[in-house]
Write a protein that binds this DNA or RNA. Structure first.
Lengths: 239, 239
DNA sequence: CGCAACTTTGACTTTACTCAAGACGAGTGG
DNA sequence: CCACTCGTCTTGAGTAAAGTCAAAGTTGCG
């Protein structure tokens, strides 16, 4: 059930048997949600964090003019809001992008982990710091990369993150979201994303169609997106 | 010496006398740096975190074409890289923007805090999650706000953050950085930042000149920047 | 004083946005 | 089985925002 989550943690740190047991003991209710279900509204007080078991979840902020900026996309194995453990009230919304299965982890259990498992605490702290590293890379995309480069970058990033949990390989992966969703991640209009994706397709680099990404030339994709996976910490230092 | 830091923590959480003592005990070497000194290069292994006592520090990433995106600016009282405690190697650079005084906090001391002070651990964890909240707000600026709105937003954000540590009021504050630095935060060219600042000045909202921000109309500044301080968690929930 | 870095402004270019219309595709009901 | 619908995708034409290039003005500092 939480294998993807353990996979994600173990990809970076040595997790002891007692820690795995503590993680399993922290899992509460399992829930299924349809696509586009809002899970968290800004400001509401939370008493649990949501672990993604299946599906894709986005965090986003809406502006006055109806514009939306997605600040992060979560894949299976990720916590969608481990940061809510310390923040309690979030500054953004959380929504499913696809049908999802999630596990609720009560904050009380996380508090217990901070009291009894300092190393696991540091591993979970690392996890929120990794989220922040992804935010930083997105800031770079939004601030400095061209539309085509942003598109290539996100396709490369999601491929890499999904590969860690065994849901992507070098050639393709499922990404059952719309170009509109993608445009909200990239700070572009859907029309412009469409044109940029066409360019990637015409250049023989990658194709995004009917919920699936087919990569013809991964090296080119990562080069166009200036994608360097270092910020995803594929190999972490023991803590 | 670390009063601004304690001020920043106490603005959000109750910090016990034993915790204050643990914080003071964690402070190592004090260092002074000139402006524009690079403190951390991407990938180098760190054994301490840097606490800002005086001055401004930026975190940034450089792209191949010589473009730079600043991902965060730190004010006195902030850790510039508390996240390096768990990440060890950073995905970005850290540089002083102005002459700075900093305190080095060995990671070993932070590890000790995670072993002996679970509540203080959660407070520091909160602190890195607050950094991530700022990253998210910057993603929104970079992705969706116009140039003028971005300029107004950052001036409002820095005012608010500096006020928390007693270095700004409603009317003005020192910001001894160049328009070039600002443009690297905002994902704009320096020329365009210059034009946007002129617009803010001509509209009687705010003036940024010779290292100082003078605010004629704070309400208008925050409205143009769509600035809502909720993401800075001025009032946090106990953890 | 004189240099260097930064600021300011103008003229022009590029990138991305807006608006609009037609095509496509999955799911629905007759 | 087919027409219909809704949301999404695609493309074209025109517009707006921000970038580029260049030059002059300003400021701080040695």
């Amino acid at each position: 059930m939480i294998e993807a989550h353990l996979m994600r943690l173990k990809a970076r740190h040595a997790i002891g048997a007692d820690e795995v047991a503590a993680i399993r003991a922290s899992i509460g209710e399992i829930r299924d949600y349809p696509a586009r279900r809002i899970l968290v509204e800004p400001g509401e007080e939370l008493s649990f964090s949501t672990l993604v078991l299946k599906g894709l979840i986005s965090r986003y902020k809406d502006l006055s003019e109806g514009q939306r900026q997605v600040t992060q996309v979560h894949v299976p194995g990720d916590f969608a809001d481990l940061h809510s453990f310390t923040l309690k009230r979030l500054d953004h919304s959380i929504m499913t992008l696809t049908p999802c299965k999630v596990a609720l982890v009560p904050h009380a259990k996380l508090t217990e982990i901070t009291e009894r498992f300092p190393h696991l605490t540091r591993v979970y702290w690392f996890s929120t710091n990794l989220d922040a590293a992804i935010h930083r890379e997105w800031e770079v995309s939004l601030g400095r990369r061209t539309a085509i480069s942003r598109c290539a970058h996100i396709l490369a990033e999601l491929r890499f993150r999904l590969e860690i949990v065994g849901m992507a390989d070098k050639r393709s992966y499922d990404l059952p979201i719309s170009q509109i969703d993608l445009s909200e991640c990239l700070g572009l209009t859907a029309v412009h994303v469409n044109r940029s994706l066409r360019k990637l397709r015409e250049d023989g680099i990658a194709t995004f169609r009917t919920g699936r990404v087919e990569i013809q030339d991964l090296a080119a994709l990562e080069e166009v997106g200036e994608f360097d996976p270092a910020y995803l910490y594929p190999t972490a230092v023991p803590i």
